[in-house]
């Protein structure tokens, strides 16, 4: 059998297979019928044979390239991973995610120490000795923060037109998402560089946030400030630590690959790390919503403390107990 007779003989099968492929990619929502799938599988194996034969008997590069393309397309659709289903979403949120998180709790703990350690240290230090604040932030920045939480400015904002106020908050919502989620994801991704970027981001954010907190408390804005941050802080601060932990996972995979090569360990552990970081991103979106619309709302501070504390409890319980058998 030479190339020509071979091609004449096999062409109908190849054409049929191409048609099935085209049909499959066109109607992705409506999978092929039972007999069609059977036919697809048969033809696919036949084509694999054809390709092997063309190769071993060197029947020509053009034919080989054609069959190679056809078989690889078949391979792609045959071994395609199933589409991510919405019904699995809840399972992911309430079972899979917290379990994955707990499996790697040591990284989270490390990130918590790296973030909250400097946070509380600088908070306490600055509250005792406010003049040190200018070593961390410029006088302008401190002044700005101080004005923001002064009784007058909060009064002023609340007394403004309700529509304008709502709009301002919507604007801030966008800003929080853009800024905070971006920071968290960079903290995570930066872990690839041996965790250096992650550690740096955690430390510097901890120091800056601690400084601002200490400074505002020493200025006497304590109540206004704490009632503002307690609610969204539950999600926001935890999420930053979670994203940091995921980044540390990547860094650890690079520094201590164990029996694998650096790359393989990055790939293996990166799957869970990515999952964890994505959860942190979602938490930050929730935090952005709270920060934009709930935290500045004109509600007695007691309610905010109650709400804020329960949110902290929810976050802690969710991460610790959700999905436990």
């Amino acid at each position: 059998m030479n190339k020509k007779t071979f091609m004449t003989m096999r062409k109908p099968a190849w054409d049929e297979f191409s048609e099935l492929l085209a049909k499959r990619s066109k109607t992705r929502r409506h999978p092929l019928s039972g007999p069609e799938v059977q036919q697809f599988s048969t033809l696919y194996r036949e084509l694999c044979n054809d390709l092997s034969m063309v190769r071993s008997r060197k029947l020509g590069e053009d034919l080989e390239a054609y069959l190679n393309a056809l078989v690889s397309e078949g391979h792609n659709s045959f071994y395609e991973s199933p589409a991510v289903k919405l019904s699995e979403f809840w399972n992911f949120v309430f079972v899979d995610y917290p379990r994955t998180f707990r499996r790697h709790w040591r990284y989270f703990l490390m990130a918590v120490l790296l973030f909250f350690g400097p946070f509380f240290c600088s908070w306490v230090t600055i509250q005792i000795n406010p003049s040190l604040a200018e070593r961390v932030l410029s006088a302008d920045q401190l002044e700005q923060a101080s004005v923001m939480y002064s009784a007058e400015s909060i009064e002023e904002r609340r007394s403004a037109d309700i529509v304008a106020y709502g709009q301002e908050r919507t604007g801030m919502f966008g800003f929080y998402i853009f800024n905070n989620v971006g920071i968290a994801l960079r903290t995570f991704a930066g872990g690839v560089l041996f965790g250096i970027v992650t550690v740096y981001t955690l430390l510097s954010n901890g120091i800056v946030l601690g400084t601002i907190s200490g400074f505002l408390l020493s200025e006497g804005h304590g109540d206004r400030f704490l009632s503002f941050i307690i609610s969204h802080g539950s999600f926001e601060l935890t999420a930053i630590a979670i994203a940091g932990g995921a980044g540390l996972m990547l860094g650890h995979a690079m520094i201590h690959p164990g029996q694998q090569t650096r790359l393989q360990s990055l790939k293996t552990r990166g799957v869970d790390a990515l999952k964890i970081a994505l959860g942190a991103a979602v938490m930050l979106v929730v935090a952005a919503f709270l920060e934009a619309f709930w935290s500045p709302a004109n509600i007695p501070n007691q309610f905010k403390y109650i709400m804020g504390s329960s949110l902290w409890l929810i976050v802690v319980f969710y991460l610790m107990f959700s999905g436990r058998r």
Partner: peptide
């Protein structure tokens, strides 16, 4: 509605970037 517009734009910038 200046602030809503700015917020929406920032959300787009986030989607655009990530």
């Amino acid at each position: 509605i200046p602030d809503v517009a700015a917020g929406l734009f920032l959300i787009w910038m986030f989607v655009n970037g990530w």
